[in-house]
C-alpha cells in the first residue's frame, strides 16, 4: 500500500542511536511545572488554552515539581519568592530545564532600578536554559522559546549535558 508497509513488512525493528531516541522522547513531552508568578503567567495560560495550544508540542502543566521536566519562570521574582523557587527547582528530578519568560525574570524588567524587593534576574538563583524577552512575551514568543529548548535537548548527549 504505502511506504510504511514495506518498511515494516519483515520485522518491527527501527535502528537508532540511543542519544537520538532519548532526546526525541524527552523533547516531545516536556511537562512543565504548573506554576505562574505574575503577568506572564496569564500569557502562559493563554498559550496553553484554545488559541495557541501548547499541547501540540507535548507541553502540559503538571502540578508537582517531582513529576515535571521544565519550569517556566513566568513573571517577576521577588526576594521572598526566590528562595521558594530555588526549593521547587531542587525538588525537580533531572534532567530539568528552565525557561525564563519575560523581562522581569530575565533581568528585573521595569523594576530593575527602584525594585527594592525584586530579584534582578532568576539566573542569580538557578541556571536558565532559554530566555524569552518581552513584557509580557506574546504566546508566539513563548512557543519560539520552547522550540529553542527542544533544539537544545535534541543536541544533548547522554554522556554529557550540553550547557
Amino acid at each position: 500500500m504505502g511506504l510504511l508497509d514495506k518498511e515494516f513488512s519483515d520485522g518491527n525493528i527501527v535502528i537508532a542511536r540511543v542519544d537520538d531516541l532519548m532526546n526525541w522522547a524527552r523533547l516531545s513531552s516536556i511537562w512543565q511545572l504548573g506554576f505562574g508568578l505574575a503577568c506572564c503567567a496569564i500569557e502562559m495560560m493563554a498559550t496553553s488554552a484554545s488559541h495557541y495550544d501548547f499541547d501540540r508540542f507535548g507541553v502540559i502543566p503538571r502540578n508537582t515539581p517531582r513529576q515535571a521536566d521544565a519550569i517556566i519562570i513566568s513573571g517577576t521574582v521577588t526576594l521572598k519568592m526566590a528562595t521558594r523557587i530555588k526549593r521547587l527547582y531542587e525538588q525537580m528530578p533531572d534532567p530539568k530545564y528552565i525557561i525564563s519568560m519575560g523581562s522581569c525574570a530575565n533581568c528585573g524588567g521595569p523594576y530593575w532600578e527602584h525594585g527594592y524587593h525584586v530579584l534582578k534576574g532568576i539566573d542569580r538563583v538557578i541556571p536558565v536554559d532559554v530566555y524569552v524577552p518581552g513584557c509580557p512575551p506574546r504566546p508566539e514568543a513563548l512557543l519560539e522559546g520552547l522550540l529553542k529548548l527542544q533544539e537544545k535537548i535534541r543536541n544533548e548527549s547522554l554522556r554529557k549535558k550540553i550547557a
Binding site: L37, T76, M81, P110, Y111, G115, H117, V118
Partner: peptide, 14 residues
Amino acid sequence: IGYLHRCFEKHAEA
C-alpha cells in the same frame, strides 16, 4: 501575601 511585592509605590515616587 507579598510574594509578588514589586514596589509599585516606590516606583511611582521616582
